[in-house]
């Protein structure tokens, strides 16, 4: 009897291992089977995948030339390796501090003014009870988002020119005309506030959505407690949109090093260059439009820029994770 039981247990154990083995086998076959069954999905994503590989990842390997003395004839593989020489040259160049300072000043100024603007607008719109007025303000403030950067730059040059409307206004108020575009000290403010004009409205959409998602009971409770509207904003609205704010802040900080370069390039002229030359416009000049394009040197400068950006986004994301438990990844 005992014997039988033992052997029974043994066969049971064998069966169990066998079953486990078949489960393992079948899970392996089912992975390949699942791939096979869905072959059409792989076919669909094939071209987008190749596109990303070619147009996003191959240029990343092209970054190798930042460490070379690249010559187009010899290609990346054949060009002479120079290590950090291109970076050293940039760090030692007269332009380095100027473009770094301009990039950081412009970005931080832009972040400090441009980031809170849509939040303020959204909070304000959220407390407008007249629906038609609200719709009108929204419709109007979203519109500049769709104006091209060329038109924005052209518009600024027109409106701020010595014969433009702004100087007519200054003259009407008894002031002296100012040629804004040729004075370096105005450049950053022009850039930042035209950015607010263009983007604050559209940027407010996301905050309005977050505000709409806040539990209405919180407001009712606050009302019963006799909280003023400002207290409601402080204790209900702001905490309610905080996760959105944090995410967008991370994304914006990650963009600090390459902010609005296309607009800078358009607004730039020889007279405001002291304030308007940023890293990306410098790369464009050194690497593309120069009579003797220095591909390696320009790539090194661009890589320096990207790496700072990457470090920034990782740091801010870590901080956000610790402090707030909201993060990009």
């Amino acid at each position: 009897m005992l014997q039988v039981q033992k052997s029974g247990a043994a066969t049971g154990a064998v069966r169990a291992t066998k079953r486990r083995a078949t489960v393992k086998m079948s899970s392996r076959t089912s992975v390949s089977k699942r791939i096979l069954v869905n072959w059409q999905l792989y076919l669909l994503i094939l071209i987008p995948f190749v596109y990303v590989a070619v147009f996003k990842y191959i240029p990343m390997f092209g970054l190798v030339m930042a460490f070379e003395h690249f010559s187009p004839v010899q290609g990346i593989a054949g060009s002479k390796w120079v290590g950090m020489a291109n970076f050293q040259r940039f760090f030692n160049s007269y332009d380095f501090w100027k473009v770094l300072k301009n990039t950081l000043q412009l970005s931080i100024y832009n972040l400090a003014v441009g980031f809170p603007a849509p939040i303020l607008l959204a909070l304000s719109l959220n407390y407008i009870r007249n629906n038609r007025f609200k719709k009108l303000v929204q419709m109007t403030t979203y519109a500049p988002h769709f104006i091209s950067v060329v038109v924005i730059a052209g518009l600024l040059v027109q409106l701020l020119s010595p014969s433009g409307i702004v100087n007519h206004m200054i003259a009407a108020l008894g002031g002296k005309p100012i040629d804004f575009m040729t004075q370096p000290q105005y450049f950053k403010s022009i850039f930042v506030f035209s950015g607010v004009w263009q983007s604050a409205g559209y940027g407010s959409i996301i905050y309005l959505a977050a505000l709409a998602g806040i539990d209405q009971q919180l407001y009712e409770a606050a009302m019963i407690d006799g909280a003023s509207k400002l207290r409601q904003i402080w204790h209900i609205d702001l905490p309610g949109i905080l996760p959105t704010v944090v995410i967008l802040l991370i994304m914006n900080v990650g963009q600090i090093m390459n902010i609005g370069f296309q607009k800078v390039l358009l607004l730039q002229n020889p007279l405001n260059m002291d304030a308007s030359e940023v890293i990306d416009t410098y790369v464009y000049k050194v690497g593309i439009i120069s009579g003797l394009p220095q591909f390696s040197y320009a790539t090194a400068i661009g890589l320096f820029n990207s790496i700072i950006g990457l470090i920034l986004i990782v740091i801010v994301n870590q901080i956000a994770k610790k402090v707030n438990e909201t993060s990009l990844w």
């Binding site: 990303v52 996003k56 191959i58 240029p59 990343m60 092209g62 790369v283 593309i288």
Partner: peptide, 29 residues
């Protein structure tokens, strides 16, 4: 959900949003 490898592909795609070769390698390509 049943697209095997989707997560990796998404990661590869998303990475290009925070890091890229930049203007000169793009231009040369």
């Amino acid at each position: 959900k049943d697209f095997v490898g989707g997560k990796i592909i998404m990661l590869l795609f998303a990475f290009t949003m925070i890091f890229s070769g930049g203007m000169i390698p793009d231009y040369l390509l």
